[in-house]
C-alpha cells in the first residue's frame, strides 16, 4: 500500500469521525458548555435587579467583591464544607466496610444487597417526606425510642446544631449504594490467590485489608473520592427536601444562597459570581486530590 493512499483513507476516517461526533458535540456546546461560560460573562455584568435583568453593562469585579463581602455567603460556604466533609468521610468509610462484608458469601446476600441499593434509586423529595415523618420530634417513630425512657429526644431538623448533620447522614444513606457497588466490583478483580498467600503467611483480617485489599483497590478509591467530593456539593435538592436551609439559616448551604440571591432578590450578577467562585473551589479541591493521588499511588 502506498503512503498517499493510507493517508487518504486516514483523512476519510477523520472526516467520518467528525461527522459522527458532531451531533453530540454540538448539543453539548449549545446546551451545556455555553451556559457555563455564559455564567462567567454574567458575573461581570451589572445585572442586580429585575430591571437590569438583560443588562450587559460591564461591572468589573463589583459582583465578586459584593459576594465575598456578604457574611451569609461565608456562613453558607462553611455549611457546604461541613456537609461535604461529613458526607465524604462517612460515605467512603461505610461504603468500604459494607463492600468488604458483602464480598463474603452469606444466606440471602443478593436480597440484602438489593435492600442496600434501594435508597440510591429513590428521589430525594420522597426521601424528604418520609424522613420528616420519621424524625418528627414529638410523635415520630424514631423518637419513640427516647419516649420509652421519658425523654423527648433530639430535635433533628428543628435543632440548629443537628439539622445539617442529620441531612448529611440521610444523603449518605441515599448515596451509599454507589460506593458499595464500585468497591465490590474492584474487590472482585483482586486475585483470589493473594488472599490465600496472605492467609498462609498468617495475616489477620486487619492486615489483609491493610496490605492486600487497600493497595489493590487504591486507584478505585481515589476515583471514588473525586466523584464523592463533587457529589457532596450537589446537595441543593437534599437540603431543600429536608430542612430548606433551616431552622433559620442553620443548614443553609451555598447552593441555597445562590438560588436566593438570584431568584428571590434578582441579583443575577452577584449570584453568578458566587457560582463561578463555587465551581472554581470545587475544581481546586479536585486538583489537590489528584496531586495526592499521584503521590500515593507512586508509593504503592
Amino acid at each position: 500500500m502506498s503512503k498517499t493512499r493510507l493517508s487518504k483513507s486516514a483523512r476519510r476516517d477523520e472526516r467520518t469521525a467528525y461527522l459522527l461526533i458532531l451531533p453530540f458535540v454540538l448539543a453539548f456546546a449549545v446546551f451545556k458548555l455555553y451556559p457555563m461560560l455564559y455564567g462567567i460573562l454574567v458575573s461581570f455584568w451589572k445585572r442586580n435587579s429585575l430591571r437590569t435583568r438583560a443588562s450587559t453593562d460591564f461591572a468589573g469585579l463589583e459582583n465578586y467583591i459584593t459576594a465575598v463581602k456578604t457574611s451569609t455567603v461565608w456562613t453558607s460556604f462553611l455549611h457546604s464544607i461541613i456537609f461535604s466533609v461529613i458526607y465524604v468521610v462517612l460515605v467512603m468509610i461505610l461504603g468500604f466496610i459494607i463492600a468488604v462484608l458483602f464480598n463474603k458469601k452469606f444466606k440471602g446476600r443478593t436480597a440484602v444487597r438489593t435492600m442496600f441499593y434501594m435508597p440510591y434509586v429513590t428521589n430525594m423529595i420522597a426521601v424528604g417526606i418520609v424522613f420528616k415523618y420519621m424524625l418528627n420530634p414529638t410523635h415520630g417513630p424514631v423518637n419513640a425510642l427516647w419516649r420509652v425512657f421519658g425523654s423527648t429526644g433530639p430535635q433533628w431538623f428543628n435543632s440548629p446544631m443537628l439539622a445539617l448533620p442529620t441531612a448529611t447522614v440521610i444523603a449518605v444513606w441515599a448515596a451509599l449504594a454507589f460506593v458499595i457497588i464500585t468497591i465490590l466490583a474492584a474487590l472482585q478483580d483482586v486475585p483470589e490467590e493473594l488472599f490465600e498467600v496472605a492467609e498462609i503467611e498468617g495475616a489477620g483480617r486487619m492486615q489483609r485489608i491493610r496490605y492486600v485489599i487497600l493497595p489493590m483497590i487504591a486507584p478505585t478509591l481515589f476515583m471514588l473520592l473525586t466523584i464523592c467530593i463533587i457529589n457532596s456539593f450537589r446537595n441543593y435538592t437534599t437540603i431543600v427536601a429536608l430542612t430548606n436551609g433551616g431552622p433559620g439559616t442553620a443548614s443553609r448551604v451555598l447552593s441555597l444562597q445562590i438560588y436566593e440571591d438570584a431568584f428571590t432578590y434578582s441579583k443575577y450578577g452577584v449570584a453568578s459570581a458566587e457560582g463561578v467562585l463555587f465551581a472554581a473551589f470545587i475544581i481546586a479541591v479536585n486538583a489537590i486530590v489528584s496531586k495526592v493521588r499521584s503521590r500515593c499511588l507512586e508509593r504503592l
Binding site: M36, V42, Y236, I258, A279
Partner: peptide, 24 residues
Amino acid sequence: IMAVLMATLMVPGETTMVPRYLYF
C-alpha cells in the same frame, strides 16, 4: 475534545443554575 467534555463533569449543576436559567 474528550478532555473538555470530562472537565465539565467537575462542575455541579448547582453552580451554574443562574446562567442556565437566564440563557434558557
